[in-house]
Design a protein around this nucleic acid. Structure first.
Lengths: 222, 222
DNA sequence: CTTTTCCTTACGGGAATCCGTAAAAGCATA
DNA sequence: TATGCTTTTACGGATTCCCGTAAGGAAAAG
């Protein structure tokens, strides 16, 4: 079994249970941090000292408080961790259950398992840890189990997200066009952007832009 | 100290820690349920048997799964509990930190304490339980501590929420007007609704309806 | 070098919004 | 009943969205 594991989780009420699981698995070194920055620091230090972590278990969202933070989300933490220690195994343990967001965790950030916090998640987490240790890939807790090849959600790419983000900030079409030109994002004609928004509306069955943004917010796309 | 406490919390990773706190406080009967309906059932049964609960500790949001649920949120559970056992003490333990929503919990649902899940929430929860036992009122975990008399958010009332909800569902002004007439919510002229939306836009500094809904979503108003 | 195809952009008409003004209705006071 | 105040509703013009059609341009195929 893994020897050295790092847990990044801000809610104390949850981390207690996670640490318990790790203890049950007889893991000798269990470290726990409540901030992403702290996590990265520990990973770096362990690496320097020649005793790197075998596994990182991280949440996605961290509460903001008085401390200023460089890394403010699990995604950012994992991205940074990949830079310094590419071979680190990574399990994400979060409440998020939107397939779009979870897919990008596997595809872009190369996580090994995703466990969604739920009514039976402690057992799921335990299974996931053991499966990752056996070098299984793309482990998903059973309450999710969506199809990775479902291309419907993959097609929503960063370009669409950019549009949705600007819409959500109150930009009108013309200003989105200007902004895209300034950032040299193409296509950037008002008409093209309009068409893309239209596709999103069809895809999400939205009546209008207001409805679309409401749905996008629900899906956690923005 | 309390003798009989009911915990309504769906996430197993959290309920473990909550139950631990209760054990530390030497509470003799600790019951834990993962569904709101189950909670109400237990409250009713305990009442019938002449051994009612002293305290309910409940989350606000519960995950939806295969089981069909009558009560789907902590708010609904508390409202129902108030019907059958008005003297029950109530502590809400949730991640929610928007003052608007928390205020209504105290004002409309008469909860005794609100503890926000955070980096030090287990200690806060313990304090809150003890304070409620000492009959203190309106207990708020220290990381919140906003002003109850701040009237800014109080002014956003259910009428505004209704408008925002319908907007978020893609309704156009005319249809909101019709819907309000059908539900006999007044005022219901398109013009009045328009004006109210305008006030909301000014208040939230939103450029347009799309922006407004994005902000409303962020604030958890819809 | 053409043809085809796909992508981007332009244009236009109708619908919904945005925003100011004004009329109508409700309500209290005198 | 008359008067003033507030709230609600109505109206109109400007802007923006919505949606279909079509022109322009680049890349791929023949």
């Amino acid at each position: 079994m893994f020897k050295k594991v790092l847990v990044a989780e801000d809610l104390d009420s949850i981390s207690i249970a996670v640490v318990q699981v790790l203890e049950e698995l007889k893991i000798s070194v269990i470290d726990h941090v409540k901030y992403c920055d702290e996590a990265l620091l520990k990973i770096k230090r362990a690496l320097q000292e020649g005793e790197p972590y075998d596994l990182l278990i991280s949440d996605l969202s961290f509460k903001i408080d008085h401390r200023k933070a460089n890394l403010s989300s699990g995604e950012e933490l994992i991205e940074a961790a990949n830079q310094v220690q590419p071979n680190l195994k990574k399990i994400v343990f979060s409440i998020e259950d939107k397939s779009f967001r979870i897919k990008t965790l596997f595809n872009d950030l190369g996580i090994n398992a995703y466990v969604s916090k739920g009514r039976n998640s402690i057992a799921e987490l335990k299974n996931a840890i053991e499966a990752v240790y056996r070098n299984e890939e793309r482990i998903l807790s059973s309450d999710l189990a969506f199809n990775f090849n479902d291309k419907a959600l993959i097609e929503i790419e960063s370009y669409d997200i950019s549009i949705l983000k600007l819409l959500a900030q109150g930009y009108i079409l013309e200003n989105i066009s200007k902004e895209f030109k300034a950032l040299s994002i193409a296509p950037n004609g008002t008409s093209s952007i309009e068409k893309r928004i239209n596709k999103l509306k069809i895809y999400f069955k939205a009546n209008n832009n207001v409805h679309l943004i409401a749905i996008a917010k629900d899906f956690g796309l923005v």
